[in-house]
Design a protein around this nucleic acid. Structure first.
Lengths: 337, 337
DNA sequence: CTGAAAGCGCTAACAG
DNA sequence: CTGTTAGCGCTTTCAG
């Protein structure tokens, strides 16, 4: 058993041709009679031949795989981005090899090593929360491997970037809250060191200032991106002397955590406290009232990431300055505000 | 620029040794002085050497990658399973290469070809809804590549299998509904050809029969696995002359779709209609009242899948009959019933 | 138009 | 203990 894989040599033997001729015929090399070309192609198909990717990778010093690193594959947003990347990669006959950093720089660095050892043609990365320096990414670039960040980017690395307009999205939410008459808006912020949460926080502050409202750290609670951060964060906010009349959370999961806490305190939304999130996660439409939030485009983000990456891999962009693509967010107003 | 990757030859040159000596030293081959071993290892680390995966794959005719095929990466359940697979694979120094079938057999077959061309060491697959025959999987096995199905399995293929006890889970839900006094329980079923939905449907029917309740197709509406299937399905059910007092949906997403429809009809849960799902998706706890459902263990499923696969890859199971692992589900009773 | 030779980076069997 | 040789499957350059 364990049927041998068929190689160009097997085809050559069968056809009494040299195996290099087969190689050329299969890739439509000029200087092979079209008669043999068709013959070879037919036989190859009959024998269920497919080329060995490792052999090609070894020869070219580059595989047709693109490496993807995310903090966690099971995260809704990231898995959707990955799906978009796969979609485009598949179309261009690339495969994706996926790894997770678990928000840990050391693991991120190891992932990079593994991916480089596989000779990936390019790298799509969403950095971990603990990533401070971009030196491990510089090393990737200095090896000539194209790199594109998505969602969370490394500011000091000169790579491609695909992000949502988080600043704008946050401003739109907060403008909407202000327009709706809320006057004391708190913010459940994410980690200050992450581009995404930093921008959302800055958008929040900008909008407050623009309307002459006090914009200070007293109204901000920093936490993570998870549900429990929302519950814990809201608890802290509600304990303060001066309670807000609205809360803007860094994402929908955090908002959902706050929602649970608000419910268990017996408060009404939006009468006692308005609530807004970010990301338009599926749960946001199931809260009662449904959550005002900002629509992101994870699929688009994945596709754009792959497209930019493949452009650079195939060298079609003339080694231009790495592109930065900013996806427009869309405010979704629902009952929670 | 584009720094060259360092190979064992580079190390050899630097140390005035033959490159095969380097190879042996690095893999702790007996018959190399421990002095050179340490020297080589140190130099390798200094030069930031890492082995070329394609070269090793070519030599061994087998890579350290495992191929994963799912219907859709962005699906909550699947992405969590993948995360579990990655977790175990990472521990054993394997990488995963992920592709999606989009519920399409042809694409599934193509994915398999691509993965085989990459010389994956093993394959973890959740089959598509349109997969009827398992011949493309037989071809994988006949090449000696270990294969493990998870969640949705191909009955006629003699591969490893990791599934939830869907029959039991469905029975527990329905028993619970009956015990709670519901007497006319409808079922929003999934595709009849898929093992998962078939088993849940059979569990449902078994429980009805066991309690002397009429168990017939009249109470079943077949659909897909998505939210809109739930809305559409519930609409059809509610149009019938005899309306049920409870609905059991094939999964939480379908239940959520039904939930929306129920709400828009102004019905109360569970007074007018009880609702139960399957899977313990995050949304289930946010419905109001929260959804009674069945806890599955996608992470566990992924880990087990990878473990069985790696056992077979490393040949530790003595080529025993492929294992089937059945994960116990757990009933979660909440306000919707 | 087809064949021959070399080499990508690594491993394994065999010599020295 | 270290070196030599050969070859994994494929592409590329150069001969025939």
């Amino acid at each position: 058993m364990a049927k041998k894989t068929v190689t160009i040599k097997d085809i050559a033997r069968k056809l009494n041709l040299h195996y290099t001729t087969i190689s050329k015929a299969l890739k439509d090399h000029p200087g092979i009679s079209s008669a043999t070309k068709t013959l070879v192609r037919k036989t190859a198909a009959d024998m269920d031949y497919f080329p060995s990717a490792p052999a090609r990778s070894l020869k070219h010093r580059k595989s047709r795989m693109i490496g993807v690193i995310v903090p966690a594959i099971s995260n809704d947003f990231f898995s959707t981005v990955i799906s978009g990347i796969e979609e485009v990669a598949y179309r261009e006959e690339y495969s994706i090899i996926v790894s997770q950093s678990h928000e840990n720089v050391e693991r991120e660095q190891l992932n990079i090593r593994h991916l480089l050892s596989h000779m990936v043609a390019g790298l799509a990365v969403c950095i971990s929360q603990t990533t401070r320096s971009g030196s491990h990414f510089q090393r990737v670039l200095s090896r000539g491997i194209p790199l594109v960040f998505f969602d969370r980017v490394c500011a000091d690395v000169d790579a491609g970037k695909v992000i949502s307009d988080d600043l704008l999205g946050a401003r739109e939410v907060v403008e909407h809250l202000i327009a709706s008459g809320y006057r004391d808006i708190a913010h459940l912020a994410g980690p200050a060191a992450i581009s995404v949460s930093d921008l959302r926080c800055r958008g929040y502050l900008q909008s407050l200032r623009r309307h002459g409202m006090p914009a200070d750290e007293a109204k901000i609670v920093h936490g993570g991106f998870e549900e429990h951060d929302g519950s814990a964060g809201f608890k802290r906010i509600w304990r303060r002397k001066r309670r807000p009349d609205a809360v803007f959370a860094v994402n929908d999961l955090v908002a959902a955590g706050a929602y649970l806490e608000i419910r268990s305190l017996g408060l009404r939304i939006p009468e006692d406290i308005a609530l807004a999130g970010f990301g338009n996660n599926r749960i946001s439409s199931y809260l009662d009232p449904p959550l005002t939030t900002v629509q992101q485009s994870p699929i688009e983000m994945g596709k754009k990431t792959a497209e930019i990456l493949l452009e650079r891999i195939e060298g079609k962009d003339g080694a231009a300055t790495p592109r930065t693509e900013i996806l427009k967010p869309r405010l979704i107003i629902r009952g929670s505000t």
